[in-house]
Design a protein around this nucleic acid. Structure first.
Lengths: 195, 195
DNA sequence: CCTACCGATCGGTAGG
DNA sequence: CCTACCGATCGGTAGG
């Protein structure tokens, strides 16, 4: 049953690859790209030091893949969360809460990985910018809809930039069980944005 | 004239030390702590690779000193800028514009160095947090004054956190001669904060 | 995916 | 502050 074996082998390999990506994403966000060694990543998934290079050509390739796949997963999660919500104000509130969830709950915190782009060459940075832009465009569209009906305190573009600042910077100060819950942060941010 | 020599020597040494601090601050913000080698820093001021260690015990000491002295200089610059401004709304606007200037103009960008704290031990981190807190307290006081007269859209503390997010995150997207000038960003941020 | 290993780099030091 | 150098670590590879 060689085909069977092959299929199973591929599935297992894909699993191991995903484990590496998740561990790498977590460690890169926690300690930064340079402070994370490929040995750290290998150990986090129970491999020996040389083995990650069976799945990825280089450490930079690992970062690039973690960023692209993490951002795409975040984007899909966002689109699933707003599916069917037509009122732009409600949609924005759901997007904000969803973004905070990706950022502050769970393990991967994909949007923060963008900060590590400077460790990559310009080619990879361009690819990542394209994925990131698609995520931003959903926000831009909703913000423009709100601006058109006079519900935004600023034009859509500067508003988007300042809004992402409020949300993404929360990683610097947010503590679970701290002064503010995710719902409260989301509500405060929405309050600032909407007229 | 040994005393004369000594004084001159000390002054020159202090100058070299300051040059190292400025170069280190710039490189740490640009490339990150780990990606910056002590050789990079030495070269930036025209020294040989071992010489920074005549002025600083370790690379971490260099970061710590750059952070503390950079934050204190920023704080003094802020206090000088608001000296004599009694209207809290005008004071906040000046503080915002001043913070953006420190962040986005010039060379050192001290507030961004705080992001590199994770490369230090807990003792140094605590010292730095104390300096940083003094900077934050001036903001907190002004925001509370505004909140007391109903001019703030949110309570002072969450407002301070979200405001710093808007401002500090601008380093990620701001480009000189880009779409928004520093004055425009400052105005937009103030618009979001004030009721 | 492991074992064994290499070349390069880097923080830091001794001695002047 | 320079010269000369060391020990450790790290990304990456060969060969199985």
């Amino acid at each position: 049953m060689p085909t069977g074996h092959k299929r199973q082998g591929s599935a297992l390999e894909a699993n191991r690859r995903d484990e590496l990506l998740r561990a790498a994403a977590r460690l890169f966000v926690e300690k930064g790209f340079d402070a994370t060694t490929t040995r750290d990543i290998a150990e986090a998934v129970g491999m020996r030091s040389g083995s990650p290079f069976y799945h990825f050509r280089s450490k930079q390739d690992l970062l690039k893949a973690a960023m692209i796949e993490g951002l795409e997963a975040s984007h899909q999660r966002l689109q699933a969360a707003v599916a069917g919500i037509n009122d732009p104000e409600r949609r924005l509130r759901v997007m904000i809460r969803n973004h905070l969830g990706i950022l502050l709950e769970g393990d991967c915190h994909a949007p923060m990985l963008v900060y590590e782009s400077r460790s990559l060459g310009i080619t990879a940075r361009t690819e990542i910018a394209a994925v990131s832009d698609r995520y931003q465009q959903d926000w831009q569209a909703t913000l423009e809809q709100l601006a058109a009906s006079g519900k935004l305190r600023l034009p859509a573009k500067p508003m988007r930039l300042l809004l992402f600042g409020m949300l993404n910077w929360s990683r610097q100060w947010y503590r679970p069980n701290g002064g503010l819950s995710l719902d409260e942060i989301a509500e405060a941010a929405a309050e600032m944005v909407l007229a």
